[in-house]
Simulated scan of single mutants.
Amino acid sequence: MAQNTNTQALSDAGVSIWLDDLSRERMDSGSLQELIDTRNVVGVTTNPSIFQAAISGRSEYDADIARLAGEGKDVDGIVEVLTTDDVRRASDLFSGVHAASHGFDGRVSIEVDPRLAHETEKTIEQAEHLYEVVGRDNVMIKIPATEAGLPAITAVIGAGISVNVTLIFSVERYQAVIDAYLAGLEQAAKAGRDLSTIHSVASFFVSRVDSEIDARLEALGTEEATALRGQAGVANAQAAFGEYLDAFGGSRFEALKAQGANVQRALWASTGVKNTEYSDTMYVDNLVADPTVNTMPEKTLEAAADHGRAAEALNAEIAASAVALLERVAAVGVDLADVFAVLESEGVEKFEKAWNELLETVSSSVESTRA
């Protein structure tokens, strides 16, 4: 099968396309393999919402749920088996990509229990546990970029485990994430670990920023405010890439690079456009840079394949212009610090809600097997 021209162009420009979805049905049907073959998909990200959607109401998991319940596993244990089995299987599917890209791609991410988002030590413990359970070198453990998550990121990287840092909304928090990664690499180096085997991405959420800021701009109602709608999400991500350029072109990383360390790539997450007034590929076309990752839901991926048109590659000048736009947003009356605090809180709550719904679904399925 031939790759799509538009997705190939993104790949050639240094953008790794990861699918923001995973399910047993997608693997059984060959859908995931087809996206690998025709849409340049070189990785997968998952989260509690994705697993909740994959398992709830799907018959593919019923037999395993009944078997595991019969073996005496509790609901949490059953969910762990179902999710890690799917991630392990997907990891095997991407093993060739992982080897060919020297570990940069062919990655499959699985997130720590979202109920641990504010507990550092328990996050570290579960990250290490999930890594051992999945048992694949190309797995990435997702850790949220909460205040409690930052030291956990350092510890897990220091232990030699690759990490996908999730739920990043502000440039300031992104700076802290980069620092946590570099500190983890420094710990790993002191422990004598091979830095070349450690990889990380920093998942910077995009569309949710526009949704929150647009609502505030509309509430302000001035002509100057409403003229800024639909621009902050892209600008926020572009400004973050400026921080990437500074950090990974600086002396602190250069010392680690000399020991084999890899950059922590920016990953654009939440790239499905929520406002139908906007182009459905705006969070793909305007965030092209080498190297980056764009993790897309299938609808966005297909839109990019059909009519995506990549804009100029991100650079320091574009990043500076993006910072200026964010300053304009703040100047019209939007409290950006509050925006990012709200989005982080809501992000954690949404994942907790999805996880609890998944536990309830599996619990109901277990009860039905005993009826």
Rank of each mutant, 00 (worst) to 15 (best):
V163F: 04
R216C: 00
V41L: 08
D86A: 00
M1N: 05
D21G: 04
A289Q: 13
A237K: 07
D74S: 05
A148I: 12
V177G: 03
E277Q: 14
K274A: 03
D210R: 08
S101A: 06
A235Q: 14
R39F: 09
T300N: 12
A188N: 12
A188W: 05
Q264H: 15
A215T: 11
L336M: 11
V206I: 04
E344L: 14
T281C: 03
K122A: 02
P291T: 02
G347N: 08
M1E: 08
A316S: 07
K122W: 01
A266M: 13
G72L: 12
L358K: 00
S95G: 01
M27G: 00
S109F: 06
T154F: 08
L256T: 15
N356Y: 07
N356C: 02
Q264Y: 14
L267M: 10
G184P: 10
S365W: 00
A189H: 14
E346Y: 04
A269E: 04
V284I: 10
K142F: 02
S109T: 13
L267R: 05
D210H: 09
E218F: 03
Y131G: 05
V362Q: 14
W268G: 11
Y283A: 05
H129T: 01
E327P: 08
H102N: 14
A66C: 08
V339G: 15
A227W: 12
W18M: 14
V44Y: 07
E344H: 01
L167P: 02
E302A: 06
A90P: 15
